[in-house]
Simulated scan of single mutants.
Amino acid sequence: MKTQTLPLKQETDIVIIRQQVRKLAEQARLGLVSQTKIVTAASEIARNALIYGNGGECLLELASREGRAAVRLIIRDQGPGIADIERALVDGYTSGSGLGLGLSGSRRLVDEFAIDSQPGAGTTVELWKWR
Rank of each mutant, 00 (worst) to 15 (best):
K2W: 06
T3P: 04
T3W: 04
Q4F: 03
T5I: 15
T5F: 05
L6N: 07
L8A: 08
K9Q: 15
K9V: 11
T12E: 14
T12V: 12
D13G: 11
I14W: 13
I14Q: 09
I14A: 14
V15G: 07
I16Q: 07
I16L: 15
I17Q: 12
V21C: 12
V21T: 13
R22S: 14
K23I: 03
K23N: 09
L24N: 00
A25K: 01
A25V: 12
Q27G: 10
Q27E: 15
Q27K: 13
Q27S: 14
A28W: 04
R29S: 14
R29K: 15
L30Y: 03
G31K: 05
V33S: 14
Q35N: 12
T40I: 08
A42S: 12
A42P: 12
A42M: 08
S43I: 05
S43Q: 07
S43A: 11
I45P: 01
A46Y: 09
A46E: 06
R47Y: 10
N48G: 08
N48W: 03
A49H: 08
I51E: 13
Y52C: 06
G53D: 07
G56K: 05
C58V: 14
C58D: 10
L62E: 01
L62I: 04
A63F: 04
A63Q: 09
S64R: 01
S64M: 01
R65G: 09
E66Y: 06
E66H: 13
E66M: 10
E66G: 02
E66C: 03
G67F: 13
G67D: 11
R68S: 03
V71I: 11
R72I: 00
R72K: 11
R72M: 08
L73Y: 00
I74G: 03
I75L: 15
R76Y: 13
R76V: 14
R76I: 13
R76Q: 15
R76T: 15
D77G: 03
G79E: 05
G79F: 00
P80C: 06
P80I: 06
G81I: 01
G81W: 03
I82L: 06
A83K: 07
D84I: 01
D84Q: 02
D84P: 04
I85D: 09
E86F: 00
R87S: 10
R87N: 07
A88W: 00
A88L: 01
L89S: 10
V90I: 10
G92R: 12
Y93D: 00
S95T: 10
G96F: 04
S97Y: 13
G98R: 01
G100N: 14
G100V: 10
G100D: 09
G100S: 09
L101R: 10
L101V: 15
G102Y: 05
G102H: 08
G105W: 07
G105S: 09
S106Y: 02
S106N: 03
S106R: 02
R107V: 07
L109C: 07
L109K: 02
V110H: 08
D111K: 05
E112M: 08
F113H: 12
A114C: 10
I115H: 03
I115D: 11
D116H: 12
Q118L: 14
Q118D: 11
Q118H: 10
Q118M: 09
A121C: 08
A121Q: 14
G122S: 06
T123Q: 02
T124I: 15
T124M: 15
T124E: 15
V125M: 06
L127K: 08
L127N: 11
W128Y: 15
K129I: 06
K129T: 08
W130Y: 04
W130N: 03
W130P: 02
R131E: 07
R131L: 02
